[in-house]
Design a protein around this nucleic acid. Sequence first.
DNA 1: ACAATAATATGAGATATCTCATATTTTCCC
DNA 2: GGGAAAATATGAGATATCTCATATTATTGT
Lengths: 218, 218
Amino acid sequence: MQILVEPLRNYYLSKYPIESLFSFPITPYIQVCQFERGEFIFQEGSYPEYLYYLVEGKAKLYVTHENGKVSLINFLQAPTFMGEIELLNEERISKAIQTVTKVTCMAIPIQTCKEKLLTDATFLRHLCIFLSQKATTISAKYTENQVYPLINRLAAFILVSADQDFYKEKHTEACEYLGVSYRHLLHVFAKLGEEGTIKKHSGGFLIVDRSRLQHLAK
Amino acid sequence: MQILVEPLRNYYLSKYPIESLFSFPITPYIQVCQFERGEFIFQEGSYPEYLYYLVEGKAKLYVTHENGKVSLINFLQAPTFMGEIELLNEERISKAIQTVTKVTCMAIPIQTCKEKLLTDATFLRHLCIFLSQKATTISAKYTENQVYPLINRLAAFILVSADQDFYKEKHTEACEYLGVSYRHLLHVFAKLGEEGTIKKHSGGFLIVDRSRLQHLAK
DNA sequence: ACAATAATATGAGATATCTCATATTTTCCC
DNA sequence: GGGAAAATATGAGATATCTCATATTATTGT
């Protein structure tokens, strides 16, 4: 993790203005920092010292279960808060957040700002909206996982993540996100290939029959 | 749904004081109301007019998917907010909430109070805490569903819901909560019975081997 | 008290998904 | 450029879970 100094700090502060999320001048408290790809923003079980606001890049939030299996809870993309649950619930310890790409974020020191933040209606309102969307997203994702087999969810996933009829997500990420084993994901990719819905191409898949995918995705 | 009048209204307002959740006097705005068992508090897809604070009873929050299947997202027990997502996100429509028992709640009219609520740091702070716990609960539940087979989750469920070594939840509710089919739940109950971990008794099950359950629940 | 509805029960067969083993290819680091 | 690590692939076999069909037993409303 690297803390940016002027003039870079200021460059990011003006590129992503966040003062409007607060009713007091927040900039003096903010550190702009960057994490390399693969770096941990929070270790699992740590007590976060900063509230982060992610402005560039992508990270994943996950949890390790007692049986050793890992669940990806959600991909985090800008703009998003990280560590907010720990700001609100005194003794809560964090889940793991690891970056997927290089990540830039604004860090707000919790100790110094807690009082101000927890009495700032503007900030709290933004946080409420963020939290309610997070709850909605997570519950939507998981109830779908429960109710649709992978072929339907994968069809939907291909449609939203494809760029111009070309799907090129990593299987390792896709199976984590979709909550299935790597093996099973490949089974279903093979099935979609066999029925001619998609076709493998250098480093990805071409969408051949979009309407079939749309039908599967419902 | 029935709106309570004095003196009952006042009885509930003093039994469950909620003024401390707000920084302004909320009582004048509040209607105390009761729903019968099985009644809908929100129909799926409706635009809620009230923010409810549940003080007595139990309800379930669920969603119907396009394929007709229904997912129970969570059981709601006092104290809890209902309709808060709709207060925050202008045009959001609600999921279904149906009571499981008779329910008493405080109703706050959204149109009249929205402005006041959304600028009240005290209320917003409570709402943030509530929302973050909701997000945490839901994601914990669903990641567990994904990672543990039913026998483990059922063992945990029996342990938390049993009263003095006697489990007596309805199978119909348990399978909805655990996110599996009724048939499969019975398979697993049969398995626990065969191995002598639990034993069927009039209208419920007796826990015979608690340590086995604890081990399964990990 | 009776009819309607909800809850419990069980069988048979299908399918979605997982585990483990192993091989090849690609990407990344120094 | 070479070795390590990550990602991709594929097979074989197991198991968790679902669907549908059909009975029986409780509960509830009137």
